[in-house]
């Protein structure tokens, strides 16, 4: 299996492919939801958009795994 390309961006590690996927999916759900709102209502437009963003974020948080190895010092004390 080919190893995924990991990069350091904004202080954390991400996989390039996952990053592109996340940007595309969340932007699509956000704008998709926004465009479904009634055209003449700015309030609903924003709410639909934010809702779409949360929805997209939830999907991506479920699908993608954080690229972090987290150790708890209370469980594994330093020597």
């Amino acid at each position: 299996m080919k190893k995924e390309t990991l990069i350091d961006i904004w202080g954390d590690v991400v996989a390039v492919k996952s990053l592109v996927l996340a940007i595309v999916v969340i932007t699509t759900t956000t704008m998709g939801a926004h465009l479904m709102a009634p055209k003449d209502n700015q309030t609903l437009g924003l709410f639909f958009g934010l809702g779409g963003a949360i929805f997209g974020f939830a999907i991506m948080a479920f699908v993608l795994k954080p690229k972090r190895e987290v150790f708890d010092e209370d469980v594994h004390p330093r020597d």
């Binding site: 991506m60 948080a61 795994k65």
Partner: peptide
């Protein structure tokens, strides 16, 4: 919370 999803949002 994956960092990718945060940047995506």
């Amino acid at each position: 919370i994956p960092h990718e999803a945060v940047l995506g949002v």
